[in-house]
Nucleic acid binder design. Structure first.
Lengths: 233, 233
DNA sequence: TCTCGTAAATGAATGGCATTCATTTAGTGG
DNA sequence: CCACTAAATGAATGCCATTCATTTACGAGA
């Protein structure tokens, strides 16, 4: 474990090569550029500037290092995204599996999963195609969830498909959270689309603060009920 | 229903024909650079080179035009993607609404929707945040589907949320189709994740040709059953 | 104590990208 | 025939990820 948490301040790299006198500075400061350090810097950058601000140059700058230095530790920017993804996977709440009934455990897991990634939707295309081998925390999440399904009485050959179905719904719903409020405004086509326009108005009249939550709850409860019926079959 | 199958494809697309002496002089060739022409060229490019090959430069080249010329017709590359998205929306099969029972109509719509966009996953982040105003064919799809839900007895204020829930599942599942076969290979962590590894093996032993279809079917049937129960409530 | 191998950092390319802009072109309506 | 305007041009601009030859500094072995 090389990484001490922060301890970055002292270094001030970027020494000119000549001037051999004060060589204190250029040395490999323990662990700022290891995976934990890169992940932490990337997360801080994302938080402050969003995913558009997450460039290799900006990441390097936040680590007081030249952009090319990052490539001694990562093969590509995708690796940085993987690191971030795996970090986030550890934030998903799986604690209810083994402690509460299956339905409630799935419910808590799904809401938590959606909430975490709704703030990181640019990662979704990455996750969806990500071999779990490269993401230990993500794999750990799957293990806990799988065990929960098995213990709830799911036939083994249906467990993965059920989880995938839930995950697909969760990823799609994460996008939904970020959609603008007026996404369903049919504008000038309103008269040409009476059923849809009416349905949109009728939903709006309900005055929900977060319409995305209504759809998510509706779909999630349907999935829990439908998938739950597979137990013991 | 405005959902006519194809766009007004009247204009001959940007075939590489004008190679004759008129290198100079961008005379306004009638309609090659209108929305239909741009859409057709973009689709052809995507088909041949994938979304990585869809650059403004390549698109312009396939239309025998300078890249900057595109900006007389579109504000940004995003507009090109919107055009493509809306074209694809017209390919989604909504014909069963009004002709078959609600369950079967939803089933056909959902499979078709997923199949179309599983070949165009880079559009998903665009669609998910796309105001429908800018996409008439997409809006037409929503109108048909909404009418189908209304006629099936759904309370008006639940229609949009139900569609959104289904769509979220569809988008997530579209990614799933593109995932590599070995995505769940837990590699060196296999012994540390017995439940998950066992579940993966057990699914693999079933020998499904398209595992993504199993998960999609499972989730879709659960959603149809769960959402269907809202009718008349 | 010296020397050398190596891991890690440097900065200067490279090539690709979307987008902008001043300018030019060619049809069209008066 | 002229003026207006829509549309095309190509030469920037600025940003980006990534590569590479070179340099630096530490530590292991002599």
């Amino acid at each position: 474990m090389p990484a001490s948490p922060a301890a970055p301040g002292s270094t001030a790299l970027g020494e000119p090569r000549s001037d051999a006198g004060r060589r204190r500075a250029g040395r490999p400061v323990g662990g700022v550029l290891d995976k934990a350090g890169i992940t932490a810097a990337a997360l801080k950058l994302i938080e402050k500037k969003g995913y558009d601000g997450l460039t290799m140059a900006a990441l390097a700058r936040s680590l007081n290092v030249a952009p090319s230095a990052l490539y001694n530790h990562m093969e590509s920017k995708r690796d940085v995204l993987l690191l971030v993804e795996d970090h986030l996977a550890a934030l998903v709440d799986v604690s209810a599996f083994g402690a509460e009934p299956w339905e409630e455990a799935v419910r808590k897991w799904a809401w938590s999963y959606r909430d975490v990634f709704s703030r990181h939707t640019p990662l979704i295309p990455v996750i969806a195609v990500l071999p779990v081998t490269d993401a230990p925390q993500t794999l750990a999440m799957y293990e806990t969830v799988s065990a929960g399904f098995r213990d709830a009485g799911f036939p083994e050959e249906r467990i993965v498909s059920s989880i995938v179905a839930l995950e697909s719904f969760i990823f799609g719903s994460a996008y939904d959270v970020t959609a603008p409020a007026d996404i369903f405004d049919s504008g000038s086509m309103a008269e040409a689309t009476p059923s849809f326009t009416g349905a949109v108005r009728s939903l709006a009249a309900q005055g929900h603060e977060r319409p995305a939550d209504v759809a998510f709850s509706l779909g999630l409860e349907a999935l829990i009920a439908g998938l739950g019926a597979l137990r013991g079959a």
